[in-house]
Amino acid sequence: MTDMSPKLQPVMRMQNLDKVYPNGTVALKNLFLDVHPGEFVSLLGPSGCGKSTALKIAAGLAEHSAGRIQRPGEDEAKGIRARAGEIGFVFQEPNLMPWLSVFDNVYLPLKLAGLSRTDAAADVAAILETVGLAGFHDSYPRELSGGMKMRVSIARALVTKPKLLLMDEPFAALDEITRNKISQDLLELWQATGSTVIFVTHSVFESVFLSNRIVVMAARPGRIIGEIGVDAPYPRDASFRLTQDYAAHCRDVSGLLTRAMES
């Protein structure tokens, strides 16, 4: 029998993924995760449950020990590696080159891909405009606030128009006011670009506000213990935080997280 439903091919597929660090730590065990085009998925779990590890493997920054992974644009059977720029990564720290201006930091991925500065200028300017840094092309990272640095980092991740955007607790170091503002901007950006996001966070509230699917992980060994869909429509703004729906989802996710901590 063939499946008749118009199923979209997942952007990222992890099957039975294991990760054992050289020192013997089992960071991930039998991880299954499919992420579909246009989704905003949050990975939520206690500290040390392997969220960063999963994301690094997804980005190709770490090797997995066993299992299979399918990245966007990658075809293991044909031996095709993912192209640089198919995946964007926003790290917990902004990770900007201190010797490059804001413009040149965002230009860097395109430069590494061989694009000249003049050819890239329009794209770089456009993405800086989108993240609200139009007037800061010539500033250096040290001249920016924490929130602005994070915006530069997001712009750099988006400038290659990636199929998949990975974010590892990107707003953890920001104050609440900045975090709320930037979260909302991120949602707008995500909708405008139609990209797919995997977002790692510690915060139940942040995950409910942002995502349409929340995947909860437990530690030792790192594994997925459940997931919760958030079907509230987008665009979501600050008023969403005041709804019954939001509160109910927060309660559900908290419950699942508590189970993750106990297991």
């Binding site: 980005a59 190709g60 920054l61 640089a84 720029g85 995946i87 990564f89 790290f91 720290e93 990770n95 080159m97 860097l108 991925p109 590494l112 891909a113 290659t160």
Partner: peptide, 17 residues
């Protein structure tokens, strides 16, 4: 810095780059 090295790895920078 490690984080900056990760950025280079992510964009598949060559050894020279």
């Amino acid at each position: 810095d490690r984080g900056l090295q990760d950025v280079m790895t992510l964009y598949q920078a060559s050894r020279w780059q």
